[in-house]
Amino acid sequence: MYYPYLRGRQFELIALREFAEIRGQNNNVVPIIEPVKKTFNSMKIALPMLIEAKVKFALVLNPQVGEIDDMGLIIEGLGECLGDVSKWIPSFVVSNNYEDISRLIAVTGYTDVMIICNDLTDTGDEAFNRLILSDEVKYIVSKENRTLKRNLLDKNKILIRLDDNFSGQKRNSDYLEMAEEKFSEEHIFYKDDGYQGFSDYTVIVSDFFEGGGAPFAVAIHLTYIKVNREVWIRHFTSTSNFDRANIQGKFAEALKKAINFINTNNIHNGATDELRRYFTESRYPGLGMVKKIAIKNHLELINGII
């Protein structure tokens, strides 16, 4: 099973909504959503749609980035969406606050909880191991950690490997020097490596950044499958990158490259067909929609190959 890690921003949530609508009867995706805004309008639209489409999701109740610093804001703001806990997975990011997380789980009464380890997590700590071995915890998300894997052997837990696969660049124009690169092969080997699921940040950098101004260059990032079943990523980048003017023209330059690639390789899914429509109509949808298309393409790709 694939557990993509996404922040609860508008276009990430739109990508999830549209994926839920077009996935058909085949769903191998359980998104992990970390809320980052105190206003929950987009979440209130997305979560019921995921539930209606029977796309289970994990919701981080103690976000580590963004505006939210109190679990109560999430419970209060999204209470109507979270009534049936069988439809979603209560999730907590763990650094070195093991006892605090244990108390939060006890207070909420949640079961089948997901624990997400970060770089501060000491997997050898006794309090951490009491936490993950408790009856209330079912899922553990972590970077590759052989000690943790060994400790969880035959413990009836779902261990999910988290990788940071997207090599983000400081400037979009830097992608001109790296037309394509290997993205992942975890979908092939995660079970052989002792995991029950795999996770990444899709085609977004793992670090959290608020939206910025107009860029000098526009880049479209599309993952695709090689003949050996490895997932690679292509970066289609504009060339008139001397100033911030004419973003629509820059998008058209990047889009032409993307269309040539997907047509040459006969790639068809909801995301690539959307790109074809923009090309045919000579239309610029905005940079947020470009990001949404890249995420949706990745979700559709992984869902279809596992």
Rank of each mutant, 00 (worst) to 15 (best):
F92I: 10
L159S: 09
G249T: 12
W232L: 11
Y224C: 05
N228M: 08
N260I: 06
L222F: 14
M1C: 06
N228A: 10
H221E: 05
N27H: 06
N156C: 11
D119I: 09
E186W: 00
Y175W: 07
Y2F: 13
E186I: 00
G249L: 11
V231F: 01
M49F: 01
R17M: 15
A15V: 05
V227T: 13
L47T: 07
G109Y: 15
Q169H: 07
K292I: 11
Q169K: 13
I68W: 06
E99G: 08
I305M: 10
I74N: 00
K56I: 03
P48E: 01
P215C: 12
N28C: 06
D273K: 11
G79K: 03
F198D: 02
L299I: 09
C81E: 11
I233E: 07
I140T: 08
P4Y: 04
I74F: 02
P215R: 12
N265E: 06
I32T: 03
S86I: 03
N246T: 08
E144L: 09
E126S: 14
K257D: 13
F236I: 11
L47I: 07
E12S: 14
D207C: 02
A106N: 15
Y190V: 01
R146W: 05
D164E: 14
N28Y: 05
F209P: 04
G124E: 11
K191A: 04
E281T: 11
S142A: 11
I51S: 13
I267L: 08
E18L: 10
N165K: 07
N260H: 09
M49P: 00
F261I: 04
S184A: 01
L301T: 10
S86Y: 08
N265I: 01
V36P: 04
G211D: 12
S95Q: 12
V203G: 03
G194T: 02
R234C: 14
I220E: 06
L275K: 02
K257L: 14
K87H: 07
R277M: 13
E185R: 00
I89N: 09
V36N: 02
A106T: 15
D192N: 02
P215S: 13
L301M: 07
E181D: 02
A252L: 07
P285S: 10
I89G: 13
V29L: 02
S102G: 15
T280K: 13
N151K: 10
G124K: 14
K54T: 10
V60C: 01
V30L: 03
T108Y: 12
F216E: 09
E186M: 03
T147N: 08
E230S: 15
F279A: 13
A271W: 11
E253G: 10
G109R: 15
F166A: 04
D154S: 14
N303Q: 04
I51W: 00
I267G: 06
